[in-house]
C-alpha cells in the first residue's frame, strides 16, 4: 500500500477535525474493507483516521423496542450479545455469519453500513428493520441511506455514531454466500415490523434494496408461499462468474421464501 499519515483521535470531534485538515483523508472503522483496498493500491488516501480509540462509539443498548448499536461495535460483539439475541435474534444471527471469525473480531457495524458494499450483510438488516442511522450531524432513515454502489447519504466528514433497530415481531435473514469469497451473493432479510412486512435484499444489486411486491404479498399472507411466486426482475442485478443476474434474481425468491419460513 501507499504510505499515509495515521491518526487515532479520541473523540468524534477530533476525528472530524483531522479529516478536515487532511488533503484526502479517510476514516477507518474496523479496516476490514479499507486495509485490503489499500493493500491492493486501489486507494491512496493522504491520511487514515482510525476511529478505534473513540470509546463513545462502542456498545449495545436495548431500550424498550429499540436496539441501539454503537458504530464501532464489532460483529462478534453483536453476535455474542444476549440482549440482541433476545430483542432481535435475526440480527445476532446475521452478525454471527458475517465474513469469518477473524473478520467478525475486527469488523464493525458502522464501517459495514457506511461502506455500503453491495455484498455486505448488515445493509439488508438496516433496510428491512427500518433502522435509523445516527451520525455526528443527524439521523437518517434507512430508506434514505443506501444510494448505490459504495454510495450512501453520508456527507464528507460525517461519521455514523450508532444505528438503532426497532424490534420486529418476526424477522430472519437468509444468505446465499458467494462460494469463493463467502460474501453475500444474495441475502434476504424479512421482518414483520410495526409498519408491516419489510423485505430487503443485499448482494444482488448495486446496494441493498427493498422488494415491495414481496412486502405486499406478506402483508396479505405471512407465509413462504406468499413470496414464492414473486420474481424480482434480473435486469440491473449483478452478474459475475459466480452468478448471472437471472440466477441472482431466482435466489432472491428462494432466500426470501426460506427467510419467511425461518422467521416463523
Amino acid at each position: 500500500m501507499y504510505d499515509f499519515e495515521y491518526h487515532k483521535p479520541k473523540s468524534v470531534a477530533d476525528a472530524v477535525a483531522a479529516l478536515k485538515k487532511a488533503s484526502d483523508g479517510k476514516f477507518m472503522a474496523g479496516g476490514m474493507t479499507l486495509i485490503p483496498t489499500l493493500k491492493q493500491r486501489l486507494a491512496q488516501p493522504s491520511d487514515v483516521i482510525d476511529l478505534g480509540a473513540i470509546g463513545d462509539l462502542r456498545g449495545i443498548k436495548v431500550d424498550g423496542n429499540t436496539v441501539t448499536i454503537g458504530a464501532m461495535t464489532k460483529h462478534a460483539e453483536v453476535a455474542a450479545s444476549a440482549e440482541v439475541a433476545k430483542a432481535i435474534p435475526a440480527l445476532a444471527k446475521l452478525a454471527a455469519n458475517i465474513g469469518d471469525g477473524q473478520v467478525r473480531n475486527r469488523g464493525t457495524i458502522g464501517g459495514s453500513v457506511a461502506n455500503s458494499d453491495p455484498a455486505a450483510d448488515y445493509p439488508a438488516a438496516v433496510l428491512a428493520l427500518g433502522a435509523t442511522i445516527t451520525t455526528n450531524e443527524r439521523k437518517i432513515a434507512a430508506d434514505d441511506f443506501f444510494k448505490g454502489l459504495f454510495e450512501t447519504a453520508l456527507k464528507e466528514g460525517e461519521i455514523i455514531t450508532s444505528i438503532s433497530f426497532p424490534t420486529a415481531t418476526k424477522a430472519a435473514y437468509m444468505k446465499f454466500p458467494n462460494p469463493a469469497s463467502r460474501y453475500a451473493m444474495v441475502g434476504v432479510f424479512v421482518a414483520q415490523t410495526a409498519s408491516g412486512p419489510r423485505v430487503a435484499v443485499t448482494g444482488a444489486g448495486a446496494c441493498a434494496f427493498r422488494v415491495k411486491e414481496m412486502e405486499d404479498a406478506l402483508a396479505k399472507n405471512w407465509s413462504p408461499d406468499a413470496v414464492a411466486g414473486v420474481k424480482v426482475p434480473a435486469d440491473g442485478l449483478n452478474g459475475d462468474i459466480h452468478g448471472s443476474p437471472e440466477y441472482r434474481a431466482h435466489l432472491v425468491t428462494v432466500m426470501a421464501k426460506r427467510a419467511v419460513a425461518a422467521a416463523g
Binding site: Y6, G31, P36, Q40, G52, A76, Q102, N105, R106
Partner: peptide, 28 residues
C-alpha cells in the same frame, strides 16, 4: 493478499485477528 487464507492469524488482546489486515500502529 485478500485477507482470506488465515495463515497470519495471531491473538490481539486475546482475540484472533488477521495480522495482514491490521496496521502495526493499530496494535500499539
Amino acid at each position: 493478499d485478500t485477507s482470506q487464507c488465515g495463515a497470519c492469524v495471531v491473538h490481539v488482546d486475546g482475540i484472533s485477528v488477521k495480522s495482514c489486515t491490521l496496521l502495526a500502529v493499530q496494535a500499539d
